[in-house]
Computed example of a mutant assay.
Amino acid sequence: MDAILPRMMEAAGVTEELKARDPMRWVGLMNTPKAQAEEVLFQELIYI
C-alpha cells in the first residue's frame, strides 16, 4: 500500500498543496486512489 498509493495520488493530482488549499476536494480525490490501491492489494494477496 505504501508503494502503490503515492504513485496513484500523483497521477490523480492529489497533492499536499491541494490539501491545504481545498481540503474537501482533496478528500474527494483521495478516496479514488485509496480504493484502487486497496483493490490491487486484495486481488494480489487474497484472490490469487
Rank of each mutant, 00 (worst) to 15 (best):
R21A: 15
T32I: 14
E10Y: 06
D2K: 09
P33S: 04
M8V: 01
I4G: 00
M8H: 00
P23V: 14
V27S: 00
M24Y: 02
A35E: 11
F42T: 07
F42V: 06
R21P: 00
M1R: 09
N31L: 14
F42H: 05
I48S: 05
L18H: 02
E39F: 03
T32H: 07
A20F: 03
T15W: 11
A11G: 00
L41D: 01
V27H: 02
N31P: 00
L41F: 07
R25I: 10
L29C: 05
I48N: 04
G28E: 13
M1G: 07
K19H: 10
D22A: 14
E44C: 08
A3C: 08
N31V: 08
L5M: 08
A12G: 01
M1W: 07
L18G: 09
M1L: 12
L29W: 12
F42E: 07
E16T: 05
N31R: 13
L45Y: 04
D22F: 10
L45N: 01
T15M: 12
Q43Y: 00
A12H: 13
P23A: 04
K19S: 15
R25Y: 08
A11F: 10
L5C: 02
R7L: 12
A37P: 01
I48C: 03
K34Q: 14
L29Y: 08
E39Q: 03
E10I: 08
P33Y: 07
F42L: 01
Y47S: 06
V27W: 10
E39A: 13
T15E: 14
L29G: 12
Q36C: 07
K34Y: 09
I46W: 06
T32L: 14
M24V: 13
A35C: 07
E17P: 03
M8E: 06
E17N: 13
L29M: 15
T15L: 11
E17I: 13
E39N: 08
M9Y: 05
A12N: 09
E39S: 05
E10L: 10
T15A: 10
Q36Y: 09
R7A: 13
E38A: 10
D22I: 02
E10D: 11
M1P: 07
D2V: 01
V14K: 09
P6Q: 02
W26L: 05
E38D: 06
V14W: 01
I48T: 09
M30N: 08
M30A: 15
G13V: 05
A20I: 03
M1V: 11
E17G: 04
K19Y: 05
G28D: 01
V40E: 09
D22Y: 04
D2Q: 12
